Simulated assay, not measured.
Amino acid sequence: MADVSLDMQERLELCDLFDELGPAVPTLLEGWTAHDLAAHIVLRERDLAAGVCIVLPGPFQRFAERRRAGLAESKDFSWLVMRIRSGPPAGFFRFKWVRDLANLNEFFVHHEDVRRANGREPRSLTPEMDAALWRNVRRGARYLSRRLCGCGLEVEWAGAAEVVRVRSGDPAARLSGPPGELLLYVFGRQAAAQVDVCGPPEAVAALQRTHFGM
């Protein structure tokens, strides 16, 4: 896949995993099977009315969830996976900056949602993938940690001597790990992410009680 974009690599590997494990397996998303997750991905990219509502609060999000549940009920798993495998539709999701940031994050995190929930260990990623995920951690961690209060936050690419302060404040906690694990953590997969958390006890406690993610 050397000539395939990173977001497309994750998309295709997720589809392969869907085909291998089937629609009924669990994911890290509470209450969602692989079939539910596949419907979410198709909705995000192809439902112009509901896709944007996924990240909006209250009635918008409930509307999106009703549409997702209806899609999961009306379309079989193989149809959904085929739609995902075909790549992003024409328009917004084909812009390079969207593919490099939002799409790569979406497919990496959801790939791990299925892998980790079914006993798979963390992968060894290519240097190119690590660099891309680290760039996305740096871009997104401030927003994804917006609910954190009572401490500052640093993220560290373990072994690469790269540290970024993403939230000001004292005392500060630090998350340290490979870029993919850091991305999982700030996307709300704290229980599955293999990161080290350090800092003064009150900062660590503030971090651990915070809901990260969209």
Rank of each mutant, 00 (worst) to 15 (best):
E106L: 03
A172H: 09
R146M: 02
P171S: 15
A173F: 01
A158N: 10
A172G: 10
G169Q: 06
E112L: 06
R94K: 06
V155D: 03
H111D: 07
M82S: 15
R135S: 14
G91R: 13
C151M: 08
N103Q: 12
W157A: 03
E128I: 11
R123C: 10
E121P: 02
V166T: 05
V155C: 08
L148N: 01
L104M: 05
P88E: 04
V114E: 05
P88I: 01
V98M: 08
G150Q: 00
F107M: 08
N105C: 08
W157R: 03
V137N: 01
F107G: 04
V114M: 07
S86G: 14
A132C: 10
G91W: 08
V166R: 03
E128F: 09
G140A: 09
W157C: 01
R165M: 08
P89G: 02
V164D: 12
G87Q: 11
S168P: 06
A161V: 12
D113E: 09
R116N: 04
D170K: 15
L148V: 00
R135V: 13
N136T: 05
A173Q: 01
L144W: 11
G91D: 11
L101T: 13
E128M: 10
N118P: 00
V109K: 03
R85G: 09
P89E: 00
E121N: 13
G150R: 00
M82N: 13
E156W: 10
L153E: 01
D170T: 13
G87F: 04
L148P: 00
C149V: 14
A172N: 08
N105Q: 09
E162G: 02
H111V: 06
R99Q: 12
L133W: 14
N103Y: 10
A160L: 09
P89W: 00
A161H: 15
D170R: 14
V137T: 02
R115A: 07
V98W: 00
A160Y: 12
